[in-house]
C-alpha cells in the first residue's frame, strides 16, 4: 500500500483543484451571469431596493391582517440561518400537545371551517414558504375583518396566488405566503399595525 501513497496524494491534490475550486467557481460564474436573481436566493425587494425576504423562504407573520404561515421549528420560528424540522415521532406527547394548542387557537381566531393539516403541522425545513389553498381560504374571514374590507377582495388576491401542480402531476397546489401578503398590501393598503 505504501507505494500507492504518492500517487494518492497527487491525485487528491489535483482533484481538489479541479472539483473543489474550479468546478464550483465555474458553476457560480455561469449561474451568476445567467440567472443572477435565482443564484442569489430569489430575493424580494421593496420599491426602495431594501430586501424584505426571499420568495422561496418562509417568514413569520403574526398580525391578523396577514396570511399566516405554518408552525416552524427553525430557531425561534422561520430563522433562515437555522433550518430544522421538529423530528418528533408520531406519538410524541409534545407533538400531540402542540397540535391541540394550535387547533384551539385557530378555532378562536377563525370560528368557521375545518382546520387543514398543514395549519397545525411543522414543515420539514421550518422555512416552508407555502400554505395549502385550504389553509389560505380558512384565513380569509380573519384577514378581511382585520383590514376592514370585503371577504371577496381578499379571496380574489389569494386565488390569484394559487399555484397548481407542475405539469398537472408534480407536487401539490399551494399559496406563497410572502408574495400573497405583498399583494394584499399592494391591493388593499398596508394594515395599521395598531389594529391588533
Amino acid at each position: 500500500m505504501l507505494n500507492h501513497i504518492r500517487p494518492a496524494l497527487v491525485m487528491v491534490v489535483l482533484f481538489t483543484g479541479l472539483l473543489g475550486v474550479a468546478y464550483p467557481l465555474a458553476v457560480t460564474g455561469v449561474a451568476q451571469a445567467a440567472f443572477p436573481s435565482q443564484a442569489n436566493g430569489s430575493l424580494v425587494k421593496d420599491t426602495g431596493g431594501k430586501v424584505v425576504g426571499s420568495a422561496l423562504v418562509g417568514q413569520a407573520f403574526v398580525q391578523p391582517a396577514y396570511l399566516h404561515p405554518r408552525p416552524s421549528a427553525a430557531g425561534n420560528g422561520y430563522d433562515a440561518s437555522a433550518s430544522s424540522g421538529t423530528n418528533m415521532g408520531p406519538l410524541n406527547a409534545d407533538l400531540t400537545a402542540r397540535v391541540k394548542d394550535d387547533t384551539a387557537r385557530l378555532k378562536a381566531e377563525n370560528p368557521t371551517g375545518a382546520i387543514p393539516a398543514d395549519a397545525v403541522t411543522a414543515s420539514a425545513s421550518g422555512l416552508d414558504p407555502h400554505v395549502s389553498p385550504q389553509y389560505a381560504a380558512f384565513q380569509i374571514s380573519r384577514i378581511a375583518k382585520a383590514r376592514g374590507v370585503k371577504e371577496a377582495q381578499v379571496r380574489e388576491v389569494i386565488e390569484n396566488h394559487i399555484e397548481g401542480r407542475t405539469f398537472g402531476v408534480l407536487g401539490q397546489p399551494r399559496v406563497n405566503v410572502l408574495l400573497t401578503n405583498r399583494a394584499l398590501d399592494a391591493r388593499l393598503g398596508r394594515p395599521d399595525a395598531s389594529s391588533e
Binding site: 423530528n87 408520531p90 387547533t103 382546520i115 393539516a117 398543514d118 395549519a119 414543515s123 420539514a124 401539490q172
Partner: peptide
C-alpha cells in the same frame, strides 16, 4: 383536524 392531506408533520406543502 382534517386529515385528508395525510401525515404532514415534517413535510413541505
Amino acid at each position: 383536524v382534517e386529515t385528508s392531506m395525510g401525515n404532514m408533520e415534517g413535510k413541505e406543502v
